Amino acid sequence: MSDRINARLPKPLADHVSRMVGQDSIFETPSEYIRSLIRKDMESEFSQVYTAVIDGFTDIKEGRYMESTGDWKKDKELFLKKQSENWQ
């Protein structure tokens, strides 16, 4: 199933799309170019989440974690204190 999206672009954006699309370009159609941009955006988002998860597991492995008190302000103070003391 495919949904159709129509968008109006200001001249500078439309000019850019025109330069990216055509016989002498990488993309044959504006739709192909837009799909490529969306895929890159999705990959970037996945990459950021993946990196954050791996960083979290690394922090746990290295002992850089704390139990929440349930109070955001107290947790933030405790976090900053532990961080400044290199999690000792």
Results as ranks from 00 to 15, higher is better:
Met42Gly: 03
Thr29Asn: 03
Trp72Ala: 14
Ser18Arg: 15
Ile5Glu: 04
Lys11Cys: 00
Gln23Lys: 14
Gln83Lys: 12
Lys61Asp: 14
Asp3Tyr: 12
Thr58Gly: 00
Asp59Val: 03
Leu37Glu: 02
Ile60Ala: 12
Ser47Trp: 04
Asp59Leu: 05
Thr69Pro: 12
Asp15Glu: 14
Ile34Pro: 00
Gly70Pro: 08
Arg8Tyr: 08
Thr58Ala: 07
Asp3His: 08
Asp55Arg: 13
Thr58Phe: 03
Thr58Cys: 01
Asn86Met: 05
Ala52Ile: 04
Pro10Cys: 02
Ser31Asp: 11
Tyr65Ala: 11
Lys11Met: 06
Arg64Pro: 02
Lys82Gly: 08
Asp41Cys: 11
Trp72Arg: 14
Pro30Cys: 06
Lys73Ser: 11
Gln83Met: 11
Trp87Ala: 08
Glu85Gly: 14
Asp71Glu: 09
Arg4Tyr: 06
Glu43Ile: 11
Ala7Lys: 10
Lys73Tyr: 11
Arg64Val: 05
Leu37Arg: 10
Tyr65Arg: 04
Tyr50Phe: 13
Tyr65Cys: 08
Trp87Thr: 02
Ser18Phe: 01
Phe27Arg: 00
Tyr50Trp: 04
Asp71Gly: 06
Phe27Leu: 04
Glu43His: 09
Pro12His: 00
Val49Ser: 05
Ala14Lys: 06
His16Phe: 15
Glu62Cys: 03
Val21Lys: 01
Ser44Glu: 15
Trp87Asp: 05
Arg35Asp: 07
Gln48Asn: 09
Ile54Leu: 15
Ser84Trp: 05
Gly70Asn: 10
Ile34Asp: 06
Ile34Ser: 05
Asp24Trp: 01
Leu80Pro: 01
Gln23Ala: 09
Trp72Gln: 12
Ser36Ile: 00
Gly56Phe: 03
Asp75Asn: 12
Lys40Trp: 09
Lys61Asn: 15
Asp55Tyr: 01
Ile38Tyr: 07
Gly22Gln: 08
Thr51Ile: 05
Lys81Leu: 13
Arg19Ser: 04
Asp3Arg: 13
Ala14Thr: 03
Arg64Trp: 07
Ser84Leu: 08
Arg19Cys: 04
Arg4Ser: 13
Ile26Met: 06
Leu9Val: 08
Gln83Glu: 12
Lys11Ser: 14
Asp75Gly: 10
Leu80Tyr: 10
Met66Ala: 09
Ile54Asp: 14
Trp87Ile: 07
Met20Lys: 11
Val17Gly: 01
Pro12Met: 02
Lys76Asp: 13
Ser44Ile: 06
Thr51Tyr: 07
Leu78Asn: 14
Trp72Asn: 12
Pro12Gln: 04
Arg4Asp: 02
Pro10Leu: 07
Thr69Trp: 04
Glu32Asn: 10
Tyr33His: 07
Tyr33Ser: 02
Pro30Gly: 03
Ile5Pro: 09
Phe79Tyr: 15
Gln48Tyr: 01
Lys73Thr: 15
Glu32Tyr: 00
Glu43Gly: 05
Phe46Lys: 10
Pro10Met: 06
Arg39Pro: 02
Trp87Tyr: 10
Ser84Glu: 07
Leu78Ser: 07
Ala7Ser: 04
Pro10Arg: 11
Ala7Trp: 08
Asp41Val: 01
Asn6Gln: 14
Ala52Ser: 15
Glu85Thr: 08
Lys40Phe: 09
Phe79Asn: 00
Asn6Thr: 15
Ile38Val: 15
Gly70Leu: 10
Ile54Glu: 15
Met42Gln: 11
Asp59Ser: 13
Leu78His: 09
Asn86Pro: 05
Ala7His: 02
Ala52Tyr: 00
Ile54Val: 15
Arg39Phe: 02
Asp15Ala: 13
Glu67Pro: 07
Val49Trp: 06
Trp72Gly: 04
Lys81Thr: 14
Ala52Thr: 07
Asp75Phe: 01
